[in-house]
Design a binder for these strands. Structure first.
Lengths: 179, 179
DNA sequence: CGTCCTCGGTTCGTTCATTGAACCAGTCGT
DNA sequence: ACGACTGGTTCAATGAACGAACCGAGGACG
């Protein structure tokens, strides 16, 4: 971790993991990436993160193999950041955090996560309440809840008002209009 | 979160959770608390954290209801920090982080976690490999692995070389000798 | 051809958190 | 009376985050 002193003294996989994803904003960047956000500007407006910090996070996450920088058009040259398998493997962490946040911090029902195959809700530990299988990230559908702001300012939040399968790229208003 | 700007713009339980436990060191403090560490000095030597930071973390975690400050002897007056139910509910987060760290960052086998009732290993999502039940934190036993340093410098790490049920108080050398 | 706009950054001064060392107060053991 | 232990607080220096400004490559438009 690029934070002054690191956790290397810790003989613990939790500490090792936090070395990689424990910095401020990092897990939120990964969350957005799993939600399907891929472009610099989309991360920027959705997170409200300082540009310099975003640049650093994207760079280190790419170096760590959590994201992959990929050119998706040549003219003008444009790159996107896509979650790797390693990044997608952080889904259980985010799911667990989200459940804890909802139960112990939140008040409203913001989003729920359902198994694409059978519609069952994904439980605290990532299994499907309906069919009991351990749901892979790619088979999770994010469903917006009733307590989300119905008309958010930024296009990424608006795009996330529709149910959306995780990992698939997000279509923002801008991209939509460009067609 | 006490970090300059907060994540309040984020309509997301993950962000809300990170508001509480997203700061540097915080999750490691909670991890230690779940491992059974309870006393200021034990956190200090085991984490190698600056005293000022430890003090603020313990205070905010107490205010947030993740830990509870409790007087355990009157003369001299001594307090200990014990995980609450709310704090113990963070176990899935730590388990998920640990699994990710072991699979994608670590090399060695540092610790494993087993179901106290049947001895089965606790799987990535927190279920028991043997009997299939979702194992509550209090029924998890931490078992040290072969790649741990066999003679660590601090007494807390030494105490953690023995198998240990989570949440139960840790007996360090010092306490042990004091009997 | 000149101007404006977008995207994906970098630079920079200010603010804020972390660090590590020093200090301190209450209590015990001897 | 003296020193050690526990559980802190204080302080100066460092480093990270913040936010606004700037920048360069490439269209788009007229």
């Amino acid at each position: 971790m690029a934070l002054g002193k690191d956790y290397v003294t810790q003989e613990c996989s939790i500490a090792r993991a936090l070395e990689v994803v424990g910095e401020r904003w990092t897990l939120l960047v990964v969350r957005d990436a799993i939600y399907g956000v891929r472009r610099y500007n989309d991360f920027l407006v959705h997170l409200g993160i300082p540009r310099a910090v975003l640049s650093t996070r994207l760079r280190t996450l790419t170096e760590e193999g959590v994201l992959e920088k990929r050119r998706y058009q040549e003219s003008p040259p444009r790159d996107e950041y896509v979650v790797t398998e390693r990044g997608a493997a952080l889904w259980p962490v985010l799911r667990a955090l989200g459940r804890w946040g909802r139960e112990y911090v939140d008040t409203g029902r913001l989003r729920s996560f359902r198994h694409a195959d059978c519609g069952g809700e994904v439980e605290p530990f990532g299994t499907c309440a309906q069919c009991g299988t351990l749901v892979p990230v790619a088979d999770v559908v994010m469903v917006p809840g009733p307590d989300l702001d119905p008309a958010p300012a930024d296009p990424v939040s608006r795009a996330l008002l529709r149910p959306k399968r995780l990992l698939e790229p997000l279509e923002t208003d801008a991209v939509h209009l460009a067609h």
